[in-house]
């Protein structure tokens, strides 16, 4: 069932008087629903006394916010310099090949989204990856695949 306007409103309202409340409110909506549906803009604009354009401007500015649902498990591969130095580009190609997905794509099944991240702060044990909530350092394609299996298992049980 799609989320109702009332649900979105009730998620956003508590953040009205918080510092930087709009960003935190948008994150809360996204955590509850999985993405930011179009209706969010008008509701947030109304609550924060902003124009819809201002809300859309914030949503489009930050990489964490997304309009469409992502896969059940998101795989993030670091593309920054320290990981490049330690084989990150090769890892990306291998993961793309294994999953038959390109960076930025979601599998048609809706199970997996593959995306780029710029630095997880694991640069001393590069390359780094994040599979769902799980951090991986000195990542290779096998460890990414294993973590994906675990995440799938957890999702199926959950």
């Amino acid at each position: 069932m799609p989320p109702g306007d009332q649900e979105i409103r009730s998620i956003i309202e508590p953040y009205l008087n918080k510092t930087g409340g709009l960003i935190t409110a948008l994150r809360a909506v996204q955590e509850a629903i999985g993405h930011l549906p179009e209706e969010t803009d008008a509701i947030a604009a109304d609550i924060f006394n902003l124009s819809r354009a201002e809300v859309m401007g914030v949503i489009s500015f930050y990489a964490d916010f997304h309009r469409a649902p992502k896969g059940r498990t998101v795989i993030r591969l670091c593309a920054a310099e320290a990981c490049q130095a330690a084989g990150g580009r090769g890892l990306q190609e291998q993961v793309e090949g294994r999953l038959a997905l390109k960076m930025g794509e979601t599998a048609p099944s809706g199970n997996i989204t593959l995306e780029t991240v710029y630095c997880l702060g694991l640069c001393s044990a590069a390359p780094a990856a994040m599979v769902g909530e799980r951090l991986l350092a000195r990542a290779d394609v096998e460890r990414v695949a294993d973590a994906l299996n675990d995440a799938d298992g957890n999702a199926a049980r959950g």
């Binding site: 310099e81 320290a82 130095a85 330690a86 084989g87 640069c123 001393s124 044990a125 590069a126």
Partner: peptide, 12 residues
């Protein structure tokens, strides 16, 4: 100093 990338003893 943070020693990173393709390095044997990476760390802080």
């Amino acid at each position: 100093f943070q020693i990173a990338g393709n390095v044997k003893h990476g760390g802080l």
